[in-house]
Write a protein that binds this DNA or RNA. Structure first.
Lengths: 145, 145
DNA sequence: CCGCATCCAAAATGATACTG
DNA sequence: CAGTATCATTTTGGATGCGG
C-alpha cells in the first residue's frame, strides 16, 4: 500500500519522494537506453522467462518483430551488458543468447509489468478470461523485488 | 531469489514459466499501449511521485520533452485511463493532471525500474556517487508490489 | 504567461528480399 | 541459421504561432 496517496486533508505540500534522485537521467525512464526502446522488454521476456536462446526462435515467438529490429536489439542488449552471445558453431552459424547478471536483474521489472497487465488487461493476456494472479502463474518465484 | 536460474545439472527441459500467459499481447511489453512509448514513464513519474500537476511544470521538469509530445502523451494517458484532467479554470486555461487508480497501479513498475537503475546506473541518477537503496530513498513506501 | 496546434525535418521502425 | 540491404511508413524533434 502506498502512503503517498492523497488523504482527505492532505495538501500539496506533502513530502516529495526522493528529490535527490535524478529520475530524468534514468536510462530506462528516459528511453535513452535499450530498455526504453520498442520490442526490448518482449525480447528479454522470451530469453529470461521462456529460456529461448536462438535468433529465429526468438523472432518467431514475437509476432511482428522483424530480423532487422531483433538484431539491433540483441546487439544493443549485448553492448549494454544485459545479454551475452555464445557462438556454438560456425557455418551455418549457431548462436545462443543468455542473460547476464544485469539482465537477470531486469526480471523484477518484467514481473511488475505483468502484474499490472493481468489486472488491467486480462482479456489481452489470457485466453480463458478467468482471473489469475502472479502467485498462480509463477508459483516458485518471489517477485518483483 | 529466482529459482528459474540455471543450476549445475539443470537442463533446457526445465519448466517454462507461465505458458498460459500471452505475453506477446501485453500492451506495455509489446509497446502497443502508451506505457511502452517514449517519455511516458517519465511523465508518470513526475505526476505520481513528484505530484506535479500542471502542463508547463511537467514539461519543465523533463528536459528535452517538447510541448508537442507532452500533449500527445497526456491525452493518450487520459484515454487509456491512467490519468485524469481537472479543468481548474478557463481563460487562461488551467488544467490539473492526476493519477487514476489504474495510474496509481503503475507506481510499482516505476519503482522496480528505479530499483534496477540505482544498482546498475548509480552515476546517472545520483549526484553524490554514494550508494543508496530504495528503502533509504522511499522510507515510507512499500514497493514494488 | 497558459495549454495546445501547425508545419516540416529527422529518427526509428516495418516490409521484403537477399547473403555467407 | 543468423544476420544484411534497401526502401516505405510511422513516430518523434524543433521551431513557431495563436487564441484565451
Amino acid at each position: 500500500m502506498y502512503t503517498m496517496q492523497k488523504k482527505a486533508q492532505a495538501t500539496t505540500s506533502d513530502r516529495v519522494p526522493a528529490p535527490e534522485v535524478n529520475f530524468q537521467t534514468c536510462p530506462f525512464l528516459a528511453s535513452t537506453g535499450v530498455l526504453g526502446k520498442k520490442w526490448t522488454l518482449l525480447i528479454l521476456w522470451v530469453i529470461a522467462l521462456l529460456r529461448i536462446k536462438r535468433f529465429n526462435q526468438i523472432r518467431r515467438s514475437i509476432p511482428g518483430l522483424t530480423s532487422r529490429v531483433l538484431v539491433m536489439r540483441l546487439h544493443e542488449l549485448e553492448k549494454s551488458g544485459h545479454i551475452e552471445a555464445l557462438i556454438v558453431k560456425e557455418s551455418p552459424r549457431v548462436v545462443e543468447w543468455t542473460l547476464t547478471e544485469k539482465g537477470t536483474d531486469t526480471i523484477p521489472i518484467l514481473m511488475s509489468i505483468m502484474n499490472f497487465t493481468i489486472k488491467w488487461y486480462p482479456d489481452e493476456v489470457f485466453g480463458d478470461n478467468k482471473s489469475h494472479t502472479m502467485n498462480e502463474l509463477f508459483p516458485e518465484t518471489e517477485y518483483p523485488r
